[in-house]
Computed example of a mutant assay.
Amino acid sequence: MAFYKHILYTGLSDEDLMRYVARGKEKAFTELYRRYGNKMLIFFYQRLYQDKEKAEDFLHDLFLKIIENPQSFNTNKKFSTWIYAVAYNQCKNEYRKNASGLTKKERYTLDSSLDICENPSFENDYDLKTFSESLELELQKMDDKHGLTFILRHQDGLAIKEISKIMQCSEGTVKSRLFYAIKRLAQKLQIFKGQIKNN
């Protein structure tokens, strides 16, 4: 019977799982962690200077907030947008706390993922590595808002609407930032033409 109940949890939406978490259902929380734990760990790792211990600490704090105060989530809203917004604010607070001692390069070590290119057609790992390094260097030159908007869209795969909620700006602003970021990258990375797409 316990196994059957767990299967029921796996079929629930994120929002329904949060309703059960608010009632103290441990397996509902476990299912949410299964869905988002690794995603959010990567999110923190890439945005917190590739510091694994710090990323794990932030992940712990994020899910602790869910356990301690599940009522802070409005179950009529989309959970994925909410959890990214909470994580994004955690990172912003960390940046503010350490801003005086950070270089721009350190703030952007988060952008070095190889997954940014959605449809890679590189002939070998060397070309992919070269593209990733070149893309990272160009992202380092962008301001935080444009660079992070690009990452949320093309690495994390979030919708325009979700990004607008996370970054607390209009959808038009998100689209404008993406247009600017992609135009700049296309100009700077012409050798990799066709690898970056404005979807």
Results as ranks from 00 to 15, higher is better:
residue 144 D to F: 07
residue 137 L to E: 15
residue 171 E to N: 09
residue 132 S to G: 05
residue 156 D to N: 13
residue 118 E to R: 12
residue 121 S to N: 13
residue 112 S to Y: 13
residue 110 L to Q: 12
residue 112 S to I: 14
residue 159 A to M: 09
residue 169 C to A: 10
residue 118 E to M: 09
residue 167 M to Q: 11
residue 116 I to K: 11
residue 174 V to G: 06
residue 133 E to M: 14
residue 185 L to D: 06
residue 134 S to F: 00
residue 181 A to S: 13
residue 161 K to S: 12
residue 147 G to K: 00
residue 124 N to S: 11
residue 161 K to W: 07
residue 143 D to M: 01
residue 168 Q to I: 12
residue 107 R to Q: 12
residue 115 D to C: 10
residue 142 M to L: 07
residue 165 K to V: 04
residue 141 K to I: 01
residue 162 E to A: 15
residue 171 E to G: 04
residue 127 D to V: 02
residue 171 E to I: 02
residue 122 F to D: 02
residue 104 K to I: 11
residue 121 S to L: 11
residue 162 E to M: 10
residue 136 E to K: 13
residue 113 S to A: 14
residue 168 Q to R: 14
residue 176 S to C: 05
residue 131 F to V: 05
residue 173 T to V: 08
residue 123 E to I: 14
residue 176 S to H: 04
residue 106 E to T: 06
residue 174 V to Q: 06
residue 179 F to E: 12
residue 137 L to C: 12
residue 152 L to I: 05
residue 185 L to E: 06
residue 115 D to F: 13
residue 162 E to R: 04
residue 180 Y to L: 09
residue 138 E to C: 08
residue 176 S to T: 08
residue 140 Q to I: 15
residue 180 Y to A: 09
residue 121 S to G: 09
residue 161 K to F: 08
residue 116 I to H: 13
residue 145 K to P: 01
residue 172 G to Y: 05
residue 160 I to A: 10
residue 133 E to S: 12
residue 120 P to T: 08
residue 118 E to T: 08
residue 107 R to H: 02
residue 154 H to K: 10
residue 185 L to F: 02
residue 144 D to W: 05
residue 117 C to Y: 07
residue 175 K to A: 06
residue 140 Q to D: 07
residue 131 F to K: 01
residue 144 D to H: 04
residue 136 E to T: 14
residue 164 S to P: 04
residue 162 E to F: 08
residue 176 S to W: 00
residue 179 F to L: 08
residue 123 E to R: 07
residue 165 K to L: 13
residue 159 A to Q: 11
residue 152 L to A: 03
residue 122 F to M: 04
residue 185 L to W: 03
residue 126 Y to R: 04
residue 170 S to L: 05
residue 180 Y to C: 04
residue 138 E to M: 06
residue 156 D to P: 09
residue 156 D to H: 15
residue 129 K to S: 15
residue 141 K to G: 01
residue 114 L to D: 15
residue 111 D to C: 12
residue 171 E to W: 03
residue 146 H to C: 08
residue 178 L to N: 04
residue 120 P to Y: 06
residue 134 S to W: 00
residue 131 F to Y: 14
residue 159 A to K: 15
residue 159 A to F: 03
residue 187 Q to I: 11
residue 162 E to D: 14
residue 116 I to Q: 09
residue 138 E to T: 02
residue 120 P to I: 09
residue 178 L to C: 04
residue 160 I to N: 14
residue 118 E to A: 15
residue 108 Y to A: 09
residue 136 E to M: 11
residue 164 S to F: 01
residue 130 T to A: 15
residue 182 I to R: 10
residue 106 E to G: 03
residue 119 N to W: 06
residue 102 L to G: 03
residue 137 L to Y: 11
residue 139 L to Q: 01
residue 113 S to Y: 03
residue 181 A to C: 02
residue 102 L to H: 00
residue 185 L to G: 07
residue 153 R to W: 00
residue 114 L to C: 13
residue 127 D to Y: 02
residue 115 D to M: 12
residue 118 E to D: 08
residue 150 F to D: 01
residue 122 F to S: 03
residue 146 H to W: 00
residue 109 T to M: 09
residue 112 S to P: 01
residue 139 L to W: 01
residue 110 L to K: 12
residue 153 R to H: 07
residue 147 G to D: 00
residue 129 K to R: 13
residue 174 V to P: 00
residue 125 D to T: 12
residue 142 M to Q: 01
residue 147 G to Q: 02
residue 154 H to M: 06
residue 162 E to T: 09
residue 159 A to R: 12
residue 172 G to K: 11
